[in-house]
Design a protein around this nucleic acid. Structure first.
Length: 283
DNA sequence: AACCAGGGAAGAT
DNA sequence: ATCTTCCATGGT
């Protein structure tokens, strides 16, 4: 058992309701806890994170088989290292001030694993969120592995051998099936080394990943935000963000990409947080 | 029934 | 380089 306390504001209730949208996540709203599947140094762990504090004075318990590296990884995933005060201060005098006020203390929580994140982004392309989650759940429960009641995504070696027809049965489109299998094969063949991306810049990662079939700008941007926790991305092709801005500015149309670029610049260097809070504003 | 969904590839201009 | 078309299927 490990106890952790951080500076507020940090709204873990929000985090849990957000995680609850993905049926793969094991949430206990009563207990205010979530089971977190992790792969650290090649070993699988399932640890339980429980909120024991408040928004102003956040505190957490981590239980299960843990060690220093696991806790370090949890700090990254739940962004316990990033004081949200600075972020809120940055947006206090922007058009987004009301949205940030309403969703005060919403952290940018990462996916439990960058590889999962990349696959999930591809599955989610151009699908409504509900069906996207259903499809992801089928994919992971069919080809992944279960540990203590929690599913891990199929590792690249397994996914690389999956046939397109097997994914078609789950209602993947033929193309989407090719894309996820292709990503797994690229990893197995050593053409894609996700663990080496940490040292690269956003632009370098964009240049590298868009070469892979099925990965376009939107997917890379989402991967940078939710896979690697990069702070300054604003996916201008994202329908959700376009709708959020249309609503914010009472427009009768969606913003153009030029307008989207302009908004992004005005929110740098924390554009990822603008994205995050805009998404919340239409949920 | 028609249109949209937290896109992207391939082909056409 | 920028603009279409097609992909496939659930949701509204």
């Amino acid at each position: 058992m490990e106890r952790i306390s951080i500076k507020g504001p940090y709204n873990f209730e929000q985090v849990l309701s957000r995680l609850a949208l993905d049926p793969l996540n094991q949430i206990d709203q009563q207990e205010r806890s979530v089971q977190v599947p992790l792969i650290v140094d090649g070993d699988k762990y399932v640890v339980k994170v429980t909120s024991t504090g408040t928004i102003e004075e956040p505190a957490f318990e981590v239980s299960g088989k843990t060690n220093q590296a696991v806790v370090f990884r949890l700090r990254e995933i739940f962004q316990w290292v990033q004081p949200l005060n600075d972020i809120h201060a940055h947006f206090r005098h922007t058009d987004l001030a009301p949205i940030f006020k309403e969703h005060m203390g919403t952290p940018l929580v990462l996916d439990f694993d960058p590889y999962n994140c990349l696959l999930k982004c591809i599955v989610h392309q151009q699908l409504n969120l509900k069906f996207a989650h259903t499809l992801t759940q089928r994919f992971v429960t069919t080809f992944g592995t279960e540990v203590n009641g929690v599913y891990f995504y199929p590792d690249p070696e397994r996914l690389a051998r999956v046939k397109i027809e097997e994914l078609r049965e789950l209602q993947f489109s033929g193309r989407k099936a090719e894309y996820v299998i292709g990503v797994a094969q690229a990893i197995v063949e050593g053409k894609l080394e996700l663990h080496k991306l940490h040292e690269k810049t956003d632009d370098e990662i964009m240049e590298e990943l868009v070469k892979i079939k099925g990965i376009g700008p939107w997917t890379v941007q989402n991967f940078l935000v939710f896979g690697l926790g990069r702070p300054n991305l604003f996916p201008i092709a994202d329908i959700g963000l376009q709708n959020a801005l249309k609503k914010l500015y009472n427009m009768d149309r969606k913003p153009t990409k030029e307008e989207m670029e302009g908004y992004k610049q005005s929110w740098e260097p924390y554009a990822s947080y603008a994205s995050l809070y805009l998404w919340r504003s239409i949920e």
